[in-house]
C-alpha cells in the first residue's frame, strides 16, 4: 500500500519535472531546464530505491545530479545565451513534435499493455538491494567491459580538453 503511494508520487514527480525541462510555460531559460532536470533525476533515484537498486540510486544522484548537471550549468553560465530565449518557436514544428511524441507514446503503451510482459515477471523478487552481488558480477563477468569503460572515460577526458583549447593545432 505505502509502496504504491510512493510509486505514484515519484512517477508523477518524474514525469511533471521532465515535462517542465522540455516545455516550461513560464521560462525558456536553460538554467530553469537544468534545475528541473535535477528534480527529475532525484525523483528517479526514488523510483530506483523502490526497485531495490540502492547502489544505482546513489550513483544516479552522485553522477547525474552531482556531476553532469553541474557541467551543464557551468557551460550555460560560461556561454552568455541571454538573447536565445526571446526567439519565437515555429508553430508548425511544435505541433508536429507533439504529434510524433504522442503517437510514439500511444504505440509504446499499447505494445506494453497488450504484450502481457508482466506475466513473465516474478511475483516476489529476490534481489535485496545489497551492492555486494552487484560488485561480484561487475568484477567477475564484466571485468573486460569495465576496463574498456575506464579507457573510454580517459579518451573522453582527453577529447574534452583538446576540444576546448583555444586554437586547435
Amino acid at each position: 500500500m505505502i509502496e504504491t503511494l510512493f510509486f505514484i508520487t515519484f512517477a508523477l514527480l518524474t514525469l511533471i519535472c521532465a515535462l517542465l525541462v522540455v516545455a516550461n510555460p513560464f521560462s525558456r531559460n536553460p538554467v530553469t531546464s537544468a534545475m528541473f532536470l535535477v528534480l527529475t533525476i532525484i525523483s528517479m533515484a526514488g523510483l530506483f530505491v523502490l526497485l531495490n537498486a540502492f547502489f544505482l540510486a546513489a550513483v544516479q544522484v552522485v553522477v547525474y545530479a552531482g556531476a553532469v548537471i553541474v557541467l551543464f550549468l557551468f557551460v550555460i553560465m560560461l556561454l552568455d545565451i541571454e538573447e536565445e530565449e526571446r526567439r519565437k518557436l515555429k508553430q508548425f514544428s511544435v505541433y508536429s513534435g507533439i504529434l510524433v511524441a504522442g503517437v510514439v507514446a500511444v504505440i509504446a503503451i499499447t505494445a506494453i499493455l497488450s504484450s502481457g510482459i508482466g506475466a513473465y515477471a516474478s511475483a516476489s523478487p529476490v534481489i535485496q538491494g545489497n551492492p555486494a552481488p552487484l560488485g561480484k558480477i561487475l568484477f567477475r563477468d564484466y571485468l573486460l567491459p569495465f576496463e574498456i569503460l575506464s579507457i573510454l572515460l580517459l579518451v573522453a577526458m582527453v577529447g574534452a580538453i583538446l576540444l576546448s583549447k583555444k586554437d586547435l593545432k
Partner: peptide
C-alpha cells in the same frame, strides 16, 4: 509505462526545442 512516457517527453524536447543545451538535456 512511466519509462515510455519519459522517453516520449525527451523525444518531444529533441523535436521541438532549438537550444543545443536543452536538446542535450
Amino acid at each position: 509505462i512511466v519509462s515510455a512516457l519519459l522517453f516520449c517527453i525527451g523525444l518531444l524536447g529533441v523535436l521541438t526545442r532549438k537550444n543545443l543545451l536543452v536538446l542535450y538535456m
